[in-house]
């Protein structure tokens, strides 16, 4: 019986502790330092939970996506919306290597994730599940990540502004390598909590400084008056861009 438990990977044994494999650069030096892999884990699932849709979950991954996209495919499975090519081009991401898959059913989405992991041409897989995945599905994905050495990022973003209008509560029993929770986001900073991390104690909180070229995070509020917004649009054809 003990052998069965060991074979199924449900038992953790202290003597088998091994040094974690080097990770994939996150693009944020402070996050690289905080993680035991010196970056994103390359052979497992990373879950990113966010209470509000558009709170910066994807910003965390864009540097890794940019690095991988120049050498291999990056699969986006079941993204909530279509990625905007002009914005991605600005981040120097190779568009011709972004494979967007929008399956109509959850079953097909799981299948597509597994196919991408097994294909040996995807360097990174991003997945937006509609609802928390079962232990069995996550376990299958985790094994494939380990076998093919492909990182899988599962993004759970929930809010009434999200397309599905569903609330996704974090499942704390998934066999992922890393689970992050985005707690708060300000103009310059994202505050994260480490909910689970192989090789490190969970519960730690830390904040990340965002790159200053993220123009839209600066507080411009005082520059726009209500009067200006309500003013009718001028008839001239010159573009107005305020900085």
């Amino acid at each position: 019986m003990l052998d069965e438990i060991i074979d199924s990977g449900l038992l953790w044994r202290g003597r088998q502790h091994s040094t974690p494999e080097p990770g994939m650069r996150t693009g944020f030096p402070s996050l690289d330092k905080a993680l035991p892999f010196n970056g994103w884990p390359t052979n497992g699932i990373t879950e990113i939970h966010s209470a509000v849709f558009g709170q910066g979950a994807l910003s965390l991954l864009l540097p890794a996506v940019r690095d991988v996209s120049h050498n291999s495919l990056v699969a986006w499975v079941a993204p909530p919306y279509l990625p905007y090519s002009a914005a991605l081009k600005h981040f120097n991401i190779a568009l011709e290597h972004l494979l967007v898959i929008r399956p109509q059913s959850t079953q097909n989405a799981h299948w597509a994730v597994e196919e991408c992991l097994k294909s040996q041409c995807c360097g990174l897989v991003l997945y937006w599940p509609e609802k928390p995945q079962s232990f069995k599905v996550s376990r299958r994905q985790q094994i494939l990540c380990q076998e093919y050495q492909v990182p899988l990022f599962t993004l759970f973003e929930s809010s009434n502004t999200s397309p599905s209008n569903s609330t996704i509560s974090p499942n704390s029993h998934t066999p992922c390598s890393l689970r992050l929770n985005i707690e708060k986001q300000t103009s310059f900073r994202i505050q994260l909590q480490l909910d689970k991390c192989k090789g490190r104690w969970a519960g730690e909180q830390f904040s990340l400084d965002l790159p200053h070229d993220a123009f839209w995070r600066y507080p411009f509020v005082s520059n726009i008056t209500q009067k200006e917004i309500n003013a009718p649009t001028p008839s001239s054809n010159t573009a107005i861009a305020r900085a």
């Binding site: 910003s59 919306y81 279509l82 990625p83 002009a86 914005a87 600005h90 981040f91």
Partner: peptide, 10 residues
């Protein structure tokens, strides 16, 4: 094509 002030999702 300038993506300076463009969102990720469209």
């Amino acid at each position: 094509t300038s993506g300076h002030h463009r969102p990720i999702w469209i």
